[in-house]
């Protein structure tokens, strides 16, 4: 009998990936259940478009199924691995789109009109995920606007510091400093979350 499978996304057990490596379909299904909302959220944030994010997730999960044996627990948590893969593939798409001269519809408002809606505080989100979301959200929101913007341009749009400087019309050194200071503040503010072992 299946029990409800609502576990914290931030605490995916590496042994689940070990089962997926062995071709365990149920484990793959569980991995999807644990991670789909987080990965979709990231994909939508980067691509600004629900349809394209859904397409991307198909590619990402198929790649996970094929390449899961490359996952090495010593190098990071399952969540970090999945997020890195999703971010990397989403940025590939973003760059391909830019190369085709297609202007990104980076308006998140446009996408939310479909059948998929932002949940806000969800009764189906575990308490651990909710607490972590609030903590990270608060730490990011607590940064000065300029630092937050520089980090987000790098992380979610894949821009280098030189590209960010050009985009914002700011000196290169200023942009570098903003990113360094911002990341350093986030590290100090969030260190407890990985020191507690939640993400290890």
């Amino acid at each position: 009998m299946d029990k409800p499978s609502r576990h914290a996304t931030s605490m995916i057990d590496p042994s689940l990936l070990a089962r997926v490596v062995k071709g365990d379909q149920q484990a793959f299904s569980q991995l999807y259940d644990h991670s789909n909302t987080l990965l979709f959220t990231l994909a939508v944030r980067i691509l600004g478009n629900h349809e394209e994010a859904a397409e991307l997730l198909q590619d990402v999960y198929l790649e996970v199924w094929r390449k899961v044996s490359r996952y090495d627990v010593g190098r990071g948590t399952p969540v970090a691995w999945l997020l890195t893969l999703t971010r990397s593939r989403a940025l590939d798409r973003l760059r391909a789109r830019a190369a085709r001269g297609y202007r990104a519809t980076n308006s998140l408002e446009a996408g939310t009109a479909g059948q998929v809606v932002d949940l806000g505080p969800s009764p189906f989100e575990t308490q651990a995920d909710q607490e972590l979301r609030i903590a990270v959200g608060a730490a990011v929101a607590g940064l000065p606007q300029a630092q937050q913007q520089a980090i987000e341009l790098a992380y979610y749009e894949g821009l280098s510091h030189a590209e960010i400087a050009a985009r914002l019309n700011q000196p290169l050194g200023t942009v570098k400093t903003r990113i360094k200071l911002g990341m350093s503040k986030l590290r100090d503010g969030l260190q407890q979350w990985w020191n507690h072992g939640d993400l290890q």
Binding site: N36, G76, V136, W194
Partner: peptide, 18 residues
């Protein structure tokens, strides 16, 4: 710093896929 970077998406307001 990689741990910080991996936390960033966890702070986004969740959106469920179709």
């Amino acid at each position: 710093y990689q741990s910080v970077a991996a936390l960033l998406p966890l702070g986004l307001s969740p959106t469920r896929p179709p």
